[in-house]
């Protein structure tokens, strides 16, 4: 795997849309060509080279290309948008839409990520060493297709609307989360190792939520059906199993009704 290191040399005045920073668009290009890739600051069209200097070499394909981002890019959005392979390491905080619509590869953010992390993600892996804000692995505004595959791991805490309209894949929040987890979900798994304020699984048709800490305000649409042992993130724990959302339509598979599940660690 070849590595391109991009280092911030000029901080943008506003927020910069870094949708071109993907292994797919870097692959097979010279550093000069990479520096020519577009980036938007509001409605103004710039080049990546106006803000970053580039070193190293890109691989022939996305899968063979690693991008390392240095400098404070806290006000830069859309790293790794729609990427299909390869790797991005951001040695900083990043702004919104990290790994949005991602299909493969890996993104690591050494600091915090803002909202819309991995929205509508289809595959690949995202690791956030710090916190994430709202709408982790959700659907785009108005859309009914949330995260459908891959893994998002947030080592810190996250905000609200985690896994909205999710249909597949896994989200792990190692810290606390606020409200609205797996709303409208039709599949997928969300694991929250800390506490959750409430509203888990509202209008959930299918999907699994695992909550290790407290759930302060559970929804009335869920019913406890028993206690189960489950292996979660490599370790086996005992959980109380709740099914729901009982107010939502349900599908059947082989004659059995499929419910959404909330597993509360005992």
């Amino acid at each position: 795997m070849e590595t391109v290191t991009m280092t911030l040399v000029q901080q943008p005045e506003l927020y910069l849309e870094c949708y071109s920073v993907t292994p797919d668009l870097f692959a097979g290009k010279s550093l000069a060509e990479i520096a020519e890739l577009p980036a938007h600051e509001g409605k103004i069209l710039w080049k990546l080279g106006d803000f970053f200097k580039f070193e190293g070499k890109s691989g022939a394909t996305a899968a063979e290309t690693k991008i390392v981002v240095n400098g404070n890019v806290k006000r830069m959005k859309r790293f790794g948008q729609q990427m299909t392979g390869g790797e991005i390491v951001i040695n900083s905080d990043a702004d919104m839409y990290v790994g949005g619509w991602m299909r493969g590869g890996k993104i690591t953010v050494k600091g915090n990520a803002d909202s819309f992390l991995g929205i509508a993600m289809e595959g690949g892996e995202i690791l956030i060493e710090g916190d994430a804000q709202n709408h982790v692995g959700s659907a785009y505004r108005g859309d009914w297709r949330g995260m459908s595959g891959g893994l998002i791991r947030v080592k810190g805490k996250a905000g609200n609307d985690i896994g909205t309209a999710m249909t597949g894949g896994t989200i792990i929040i190692e810290g606390n989360a606020f409200i609205h987890v797996l709303t409208h979900a039709e599949g997928g798994t969300v694991i929250i190792k800390g506490d959750v304020e409430g509203r888990v699984g509202g209008q959930m048709v299918k999907g699994d939520a695992y909550i290790f800490g407290n759930l302060l305000y559970p929804l009335p649409g869920f019913k406890k059906i028993g206690t189960v042992e489950k292996e979660v993130d490599g370790t086996t724990y005992t959980f109380d199993q709740y099914i729901g959302d009982l107010g939502e339509r349900k599908t059947k598979k082989k004659g059995e009704i499929i419910y959404g599940n909330i597993y509360m660690k005992i």
């Binding site: 619509w101 785009y140 108005g142």
Partner: peptide, 10 residues
């Protein structure tokens, strides 16, 4: 109004 996602790439 109902479909902001209609303006989005997919």
């Amino acid at each position: 109004e109902m479909r902001p996602e209609d303006k989005l790439f997919r």
